[in-house]
Amino acid sequence: TFEVERIVRKKIVHGNTSYLVKWKNYSSKDNTWETEDDIRTKYGDLVDDFEK
């Protein structure tokens, strides 16, 4: 199971928000862009903290 360590960046393309996710126990080269809906479902607190 993958676990988010932190959110690195945010991008908005054509009105759709995605977050660059750093995965726990993986290197930064393994970071992936994930949709806001996918990340918010399980890691809403991390998204809220990133947006502060």
Score class of each variant (00 low, 15 high):
D45P: 11
I7A: 00
S28K: 07
T1D: 13
G15E: 04
V47Y: 06
T35K: 12
L20V: 01
H14N: 15
D37K: 11
R9Q: 11
Y19N: 00
T1H: 13
K10V: 06
L46M: 13
I7Y: 00
T17G: 03
V13Q: 08
E34S: 04
Y19E: 00
R40E: 03
L46C: 04
W33A: 02
V8L: 14
R9K: 13
K52C: 07
Y26G: 12
K10C: 07
I7K: 01
K29G: 08
V47G: 02
W23L: 02
D49T: 10
W23M: 01
G44S: 14
E51K: 05
S27R: 06
I12C: 12
W33D: 00
V47H: 05
S27P: 15
R6A: 13
N25C: 07
R9C: 15
V21R: 02
D37M: 13
V21Y: 01
D30W: 15
R40D: 01
K42S: 08
L46F: 06
W33T: 01
L46S: 11
K22L: 05
W33K: 00
E5S: 03
I39Y: 01
V8G: 00
I39H: 01
I7H: 00
S27M: 10
Y26V: 14
K42Y: 12
F2K: 15
N31L: 13
E3I: 12
K52G: 08
G44C: 05
E34V: 15
K29D: 12
I39G: 00
V21Q: 00
W33H: 01
F50Y: 10
N16W: 09
T32A: 03
V47M: 07
I39P: 02
V4C: 07
S27G: 12
V13K: 08
T41K: 14
G44M: 10
E3V: 10
I7Q: 02
F50C: 03
L20G: 02
K29V: 10
S27T: 12
T17D: 00
K11D: 04
D38F: 15
K22R: 05
V4L: 10
E5A: 04
K24Y: 07
F2G: 14
E3R: 04
L20S: 01
T35F: 09
R9H: 08
E51G: 03
R6M: 14
K11A: 09
I12P: 01
T1W: 10
E34A: 06
W33C: 05
W23F: 04
K52Y: 08
K22T: 04
G44L: 09
H14F: 11
K22I: 05
E36S: 09
T35Y: 08
D37E: 14
E51Y: 05
T35A: 13
S27F: 05
V21I: 13
K29I: 09
T35Q: 08
